[in-house]
């Protein structure tokens, strides 16, 4: 019931609409560019050097083995997914706590139900947006590419599923941040700024050996390279790791939320 109400509110509130409009505008523009076949020559000639330099050899292999338009969407979407997920899920329990709306709720429903409902509402909103974008990217790839349609649909489904799963840890991270901040604006600021600063700091650290393997995994964004491979094996392991991130962040978020005064 709360999830239903939460979703209805998310789809009509300024914050929910802002997320959806921003998401739709960006991918609308991206699909418009991709539909013209702009990405079809990626991985060929000098562009392969650029891709190998910008990303790594795994991405280059992916471009060479899968439909390039869909790969271009996939790589861009994995970079943007954390930001969109955090933007779309910054208001989970923050409004309830900040405006004390929670005082109308808790005499009628448990805190756990509120926390889970708010998380599910945000997760459904964000993953639904990813699903629609994934369908859009698959259709655009069919238009732009002369490749086998069955292969495009299969890879489109894989990409979409990965992006949906990859978004979830960031929704869970925001459940922790929103419970801690009790203000939507502050939650958004702390979540987004914290993520960007941490990501920059981690990428700038001169890491070696075991530290180079483990420290990037402190954030779910460290899983990106495992998704950007033609093989499904590493992607499946990374997807499972995403669920572990979800569990860890959600448990921490719940611990903060359950202890807070209403």
């Amino acid at each position: 019931m709360l999830v239903r109400h939460d979703l209805r509110y998310a789809l009509s509130s300024p914050r929910g609409l802002l997320f959806l409009i921003f998401f739709a505008l960006l991918w609308g523009w991206g699909f418009y560019k991709l539909a013209g076949g702009a990405a079809e020559d990626l991985g060929k000639g000098q562009s392969s050097l650029l891709i190998a330099w910008l990303f790594d050899m795994k991405v280059l292999h992916l471009v060479q083995e899968r439909p390039p338009t869909l790969v271009a969407y996939f790589v861009a979407a994995t970079w943007l997914a954390p930001l969109f997920a955090m933007l779309g899920s910054c208001d989970q329990t923050a409004s309830d706590l900040g405006t004390r709306h929670i005082r109308f709720l808790i005499p009628r429903v448990g805190r756990a139900e509120i926390f889970i409902a708010r998380f599910l509402g945000a997760a459904i909103l964000v993953t639904s947006a990813q699903l629609l974008a994934g369908v859009g990217a698959t259709i655009v790839t069919m238009i732009a590419s002369s490749g086998d349609r069955g292969d495009i649909v299969a890879f489109g489904a894989q990409v979409t599923a990965i992006l949906m799963v990859y978004s979830l840890p960031f929704v869970a991270l925001m459940s922790l941040v929103s419970a801690a901040m009790a203000s939507v604006g502050l939650a958004m600021l702390v979540g987004l700024a914290g993520y960007v600063l941490l990501a920059i700091a981690l990428s700038a650290l001169p890491l070696e050996g075991t530290a180079a393997t483990i420290i990037p995994l402190l954030l779910p964004s460290g899983l990106k390279p495992h998704f950007h491979q033609p093989d499904m094996g590493p992607a499946l392991i990374a997807a499972a790791a995403c669920l572990i991130y979800v569990a860890v962040y959600a448990v921490l978020g719940w611990q903060v939320f359950r202890r807070r005064d209403a």
């Binding site: 509110y9 009509s12 409004s95 405006t99 004390r100 709306h101 005082r103 109308f104």
Partner: peptide, 10 residues
């Protein structure tokens, strides 16, 4: 409650 707010826009 004295200072609880309803959800805006609903």
């Amino acid at each position: 409650p004295q200072d609880a707010a309803f959800v805006k826009g609903v």
